[in-house]
Design a protein around this nucleic acid. Structure first.
Lengths: 191, 191
DNA sequence: CACCCTATTTATAATTT
DNA sequence: TAAATTATAAATAGGGT
């Protein structure tokens, strides 16, 4: 809607792209606000300029709230049938290790290219780093669970030895050692 | 842009509100797509109808990705000065317990009101439930850490007793029991 | 509801300042 | 280089099916 019809394809000219971005971004956020008011619904819009700047609108106080609802929605729809950690693991198993990742980053940052890294490159790197974070998040629960298991085993062995030696123990009436496994573990990961 | 100018205020008539919602939602998502293509930027839009249906657009594969970037952005801007778990705790300390919450929900759901709960009520309940989830999330790390500590203490005591009785032990050369505290704990919560 | 129709308003591309 | 203007394209309100 302007002096002439424009095709919806990437605008090459850097300058007019910036102008269009500014105008249409403003328009989009305005429309979002109108929709939320007119129809009494929750709307969130997030825009990342390719220079990393963030523009957003949210009908509720914080966008985080809508994001949470989105997550709930998505999570609720994917069956919680399988072990969450296993799912996550297979999903991210093919990514680089954190070590490899850091090496890649360092290598890239040393490249003496004209303008350094392209936006596309940076986006790719960011995604790789994010994947590594996902791995870490998944492994957190795994490691804690394993550590707990090893401690439980130690205790079991010590108790056994003690019994063999026929000694009274103050520890037998402590709360029973519950194993953490399966569903419980999936729950921990989910949280 | 229609037969007459409309004020931007909640549409009372249920029917025309639904029609407007449908039209403008479609328009908003279209604009979002155009912006992302024309200006080569990442855009995400999320709309929740007040009947809980979700409509969204994302320029990348998954909206989750943009959400992650949003979180990164926000997290990067708030100083990570204080202990994460303490921050979360104080932030949600005043909310109801999960038990109280469930009672409230049950009570509300039994109300024989005209149309049951109002949208506003449901949104409020949802937020309360979400807050409870946040509490749970924060407590997960806390509980696991406490459990680990108790196991470590048990082991320490057993070792001590054993030494008093002058008995040789296979366990003294096991990996030393490391305490999880402070920064490590904040890190676990963050992940 | 999900379309069509079309008078009008709104958004915005090109142009000027 | 950005801000204001203007001519035109696009979105959509209200009405019908």
């Amino acid at each position: 809607m302007g002096r002439k019809k424009v095709e919806i394809k990437p605008i090459k000219d850097k300058n007019s792209r910036q102008v269009t971005f500014s105008k249409r971004r403003k328009g989009l956020l305005k429309k979002a606000k109108q929709l939320s008011i007119l129809c009494d619904v929750d709307v969130a819009v997030v825009v990342f300029s390719n220079h990393g700047r963030l523009y957003d609108f949210s009908s509720t106080n914080s966008l985080v709230e809508i994001v949470r609802r989105y997550h709930n929605h998505v999570e609720a729809e994917k069956e919680i049938s399988a072990d969450v950690s296993d799912t996550e693991h297979s999903k991210y198993a093919s990514f680089m290790t954190v070590g490899e990742l850091l090496q890649t980053v360092e290598r890239r940052l040393e490249e003496p290219d004209v303008d350094g890294l392209s936006v596309t490159d940076l986006v790719h790197l960011e995604n790789q780093l994010q994947s590594a974070l996902m791995q870490a998040r998944s492994r957190k629960t795994h490691l804690m669970v394993e550590y707990i298991k090893s401690l439980q085993e130690k205790i079991a062995m010590m108790k056994k030895n003690r019994e063999v030696n026929g000694m009274a123990s103050d520890f037998t009436n402590l709360a029973p050692v519950r194993m953490i496994c399966g569903q419980q573990r999936a729950m921990l990961n989910f949280l």
